[in-house]
């Protein structure tokens, strides 16, 4: 329980404490609707069945949910050896191919043509990182979590300071929509370990941990994204901005070549 996030977390709760005397109230702030922008979510996995490219548009802020899916785009993924695959639109706005699988160590290129616009990106598929062991420790209730077990995972990677991981958790088959990010380039005592500080687990929970190894650029996108989704610790930025996409052409979103591994545990 001692990585950098922990420090940020405490600092944040400290700031909250200092504002004890504060009060909150809903307020009417008129916001202008920006023009709709193209949002790309493109992932190429090293395992079958997961790779897909989703194209949609942004919507209003106060009434989210209306995000039109973009059909009839030409979506191509090619590797550095010159192999190129044109994806099929399997459902509205979703493009894939059953045979679409990436190889570790290969660099991939994504090309999207939609309605006269062109978006491009590249991503390197790194080596997958396997979780060696998982440990649990009882944690008290805190401002940022409920009482319950804190899970810590232990792993080894070839080049620890060039390891960028994004974890996805399925708890009793339910996906948790939260960004858990491990940045190996940061100074940390817990190299090769990660604590899920904001999640609390109960005895008997069945947890599937998907460990996604990313390249630095794709990771940086999620790292910046976490500042906006509230998953990053620390006081909110004074001047928030859109995460820098690794796509050219003015699209929001990302293209990531993902080397994934799966670990399943039951809380003892």
């Amino acid at each position: 329980m001692k990585n950098i996030s922990f420090v940020h977390l405490l600092l944040f709760s400290l700031l909250s404490l200092s504002l004890l005397s504060s009060c909150t109230e809903v307020i009417d702030i008129p916001l202008e609707d920006a023009d709709r922008k193209v949002v790309v979510q493109a992932s190429l996995y090293n395992v079958p069945g997961f790779s897909q490219v989703v194209l949609m548009q942004s919507g209003s802020f106060y009434e989210p949910g209306d995000y039109p899916l973009l059909s009839d785009a030409a979506v191509t993924i090619s590797d550095e050896e010159g192999n190129s695959q044109l994806l099929e639109e399997t459902q509205a706005g979703v493009y894939s191919l059953p045979s679409l699988i990436g190889k570790e160590g290969m660099k991939y290129q994504l090309d999207i043509e939609y309605n006269g616009e062109n978006f491009q990106s590249g991503s390197l598929m790194k080596s997958a990182v396997q979780i060696d062991s998982v440990s649990f420790e009882m944690g008290e209730e805190a401002p940022f979590r409920e009482a319950g077990y804190v899970m810590q995972v232990h792993f080894t990677s070839k080049n620890p300071s060039d390891t960028y991981l994004k974890f996805r958790l399925l708890v009793n088959d339910t996906l948790i929509n939260r960004l858990y990010l491990y940045d190996g380039s940061l100074p940390r005592g817990g190299a090769g370990q990660y604590s899920f500080l904001t999640a609390s687990f109960q005895k008997g929970d069945r947890i599937q941990i998907i460990t996604e190894s990313l390249d630095k650029e794709a990771f940086s996108y999620f790292d910046q994204l976490s500042e906006l989704t509230g998953d990053a610790f620390g006081p909110p930025s004074a001047a928030p901005a859109n995460p820098k996409s690794n796509l050219s052409g003015g699209a929001l979103g990302y293209f990531a070549a993902v080397a994934a591994s799966l670990k399943e545990v039951v809380v003892p």
Binding site: K37, M56, G59, G253
Partner: peptide, 8 residues
């Protein structure tokens, strides 16, 4: 405005 990435 807003959009969704990986369910967020």
């Amino acid at each position: 405005g807003s959009y969704v990435v990986d369910g967020n």
